[in-house]
Every structure is written in structure tokens, then in C-alpha cells.
Design a protein around this nucleic acid. Structure first.
Lengths: 101, 101
DNA sequence: TGAAATTATCAGTCCATGGTGATGTCAGTC
DNA sequence: GACTGACATCACCATGGACTGATAATTTCA
């Protein structure tokens, strides 16, 4: 019952554009060009964000010629889901606990 | 099956101190003084963060004399957990989908 | 009523980080 | 080999937001 949430992972996912990327990748594996077209963001900007996502283990790359495919790693999201579920369960269990002043 | 995650809520929870507060409140309802003692942060700082958490609906307040108790709302965490689980499930279902360049 | 305790508000500072342009690197094509 | 396209890297700028000090508002107690 450690019930702690991965802060760093949360920070990485809390950016709107990065979350958008993750949502897109949840539907199909894409390469940078696709993401540029889908999001309207600059290539440089996307490349920076993809690096952050990759460093955090959220995404893995698959080089294919001059293209680079990005694939989402569902385990990471599942883990996060479990962490929040655990924290919520803890809160439910301790709903009546109140420290007196 | 839109499977989008609440970005604003994520942003709110992605701050280390706020996540610490949420974790503490998952175990028992506390007032500001307790949170000051537990976290070591300044009262002003905590008050600001608690306002953010409250505005985001993560926490609710219960005034009690000159004290203010803060209670965690588990529904919010459960919702977030469900959103991530749904996104992960989508990714699992589309694991083989890859758009060609 | 005066003083102390608890919490909130406000204005200001400072820094992390998201966005950008320029440039480098590598693969494919002519 | 020259050229184009895909992607990464670097340095820079601008801004949001975390933190702080001073202060106000409210409650409790002597």
C-alpha cells in the first residue's frame, strides 16, 4: 500500500501537446510527419516533445529508413491508471479518518 | 470512444507538492496546519496550492471554527484512473495499426 | 477589548520549460 | 556526387506558475 503516483511521469503527460500525441498514438503508430500534419505543430517542437516522451518511457521508436515510427507503450498508462485507482481506494477506505487539531 | 484525458486536471496534479498533499489527504482529512507540519512548506504556499486543488474539484473544504479541513474527493481520481485505463485499452486494441508514409 | 492563532489574499520575483529558427545528420533518389 | 526529404540537435527567447513576504480577515481565548 505504497500509494504514490509517479510525479515525473505525470509532469511529462500534463502538457497539452504531449497528451495529444499520446492520444493519437493510442489509435495508431505514426511517424513524425503524420504528427506534424495531425497537430499542426512545428517539426522541431514535436521532435522535442517526442524526445521527452521517449525518455520517460511512454513511447518507443522504430526507425524505418528515413522515417521514425513512434509507438505507444500501454503498460505505462496502465500503471498510472493503477496508481490512481489505488490512491482512490485508499481515500475511500479512510473516508472517515480525520486528524483533530 | 474519444478517450481523451483531462489535461487541466493532469496539470493540477503534476506538481510534486500538490501530489504530496493529495497523497496525504488520501489517508486522512487534514487542515492547513497539519499539512504545514507534514510537508514543511510555508503556510502561504500551501494555501495557494490548496486553492488550486479546490478550484479543480480535487479537494473540498469543511470550515470548522478557525480551522479549515481539506477532504479528498476520490471520484476525481477514479475518473482519471478510468481515463487512463480507457486510453491504454485503446492502445492495446490498435497495437497493430500503423499508418504508412 | 486586546492578543494570539489560523487561514486567505495580494503583489512581486525568479526559474523551468514550451516554442522557435538555424543548422546538422542521415537516407533515398536522380 | 548532388539534391531532396525526414528527423534531431542546439541556442535563444518568452511566459506561466511556483514560491515568498507582507498583510488582511476571522475566530478563539484571556
Amino acid at each position: 500500500m505504497v500509494m504514490s503516483v509517479d510525479t515525473e511521469l505525470l509532469r511529462v503527460l500534463s502538457d497539452p501537446l504531449r497528451l495529444r500525441i499520446v492520444t493519437l498514438l493510442a489509435h495508431e503508430t505514426l511517424c513524425t510527419t503524420h504528427l506534424v500534419a495531425e497537430t499542426g505543430a512545428r517539426q522541431t517542437n514535436l521532435s522535442n516533445h517526442l524526445r521527452v516522451l521517449r525518455d520517460a518511457g511512454v513511447v518507443e521508436t522504430e526507425p524505418c529508413g528515413r522515417f521514425t515510427y513512434y509507438r505507444l507503450r500501454p503498460e505505462v498508462l496502465e500503471s498510472l491508471s493503477g496508481q490512481f485507482a489505488g490512491l482512490a481506494a485508499t481515500a475511500r477506505a479512510n473516508a472517515d479518518a480525520k486528524r483533530s487539531c
